[in-house]
Nucleic acid binder design. Structure first.
Length: 199
DNA sequence: TCACTGATCGTCT
DNA sequence: GACGATCAGTGAG
């Protein structure tokens, strides 16, 4: 994926990334997944890690778009974001869930489960299945390397929106985007049934 | 399938 | 010193 193809606006990028391919190369082999759920974290968004300005942790959010922002959460999990907007602004898209396409044995081993539906369903699981951690923070996802984005193998089908998950601020904003009929989307079934997006 | 809860630690106040 | 863009396990329906 070329950087010029990526929308600058974080909300547009969140939609754009649905259907996009993630490729993860390690010495153990290649794992490939198709993004089915994202959340946008906008400039001036009180729920965004960039809201209080640049710190060592969130530095990548303020860099060029199309890079990885990886952070550690709840003492157990890593979360993977794609940076958005222009340099200095501070915004990104959390990749919340994906459909496994290749390297399933590798992902099953990393996750310790045989249930393929749960390999990449949720941001923490996705990072674990793809062996994403701090070492990849700041990585350029538009360049050859251990983790990169590629054009969709199958374009996204109907897209729906909802409130973002797990927040205490800006809770009402509908900045979560997901493929409506995908079984690889996170959250309870009730939450998956949301309004189909048209705007 | 859903609601609830404990685990666990880096980051910033 | 509090809290967090989460998850697995548990128990009830």
């Amino acid at each position: 994926m070329r950087r010029a193809e990526l929308p600058i606006d974080a909300r547009e990028l969140a939609r754009f990334l649905l259907g996009t391919t993630i490729v993860r190369d390690t010495p153990e082999g290649r794992a490939v997944a198709r993004i089915v759920e994202t959340e946008a974290y906008l400039p001036g968004d009180a729920a965004a890690h960039s809201f209080r300005g640049e710190t060592p942790r969130n530095r990548a959010l303020f860099g060029p778009r199309g890079h990885a922002y990886v952070y550690f959460i709840y003492g157990n999990h890593w979360c993977f974001n794609v940076t958005a907007e222009r340099v200095g602004v501070g915004a990104g898209v959390l990749v919340r869930a994906a459909e496994p396409l290749a390297g399933l044995e590798l992902m099953r081993a990393r996750r310790g489960t045989e249930r393929d539906r749960d390999l990449l369903r949720g941001p923490g699981r996705l990072a674990q299945a793809l062996a994403i951690d701090r070492a990849l923070d700041g990585l350029d996802l538009c360049a050859a390397g251990p983790l990169w984005l590629a054009a969709p193998l199958a374009p996204a089908r109907a897209i729906a929106t909802s409130r973002r998950i797990g927040l205490t601020k800006e809770v009402e904003r509908r900045l979560r985007f997901f493929e409506r009929d995908s079984v690889y989307v996170s959250g309870p079934a009730r939450r998956r049934a949301a309004v189909t997006a048209n705007d």
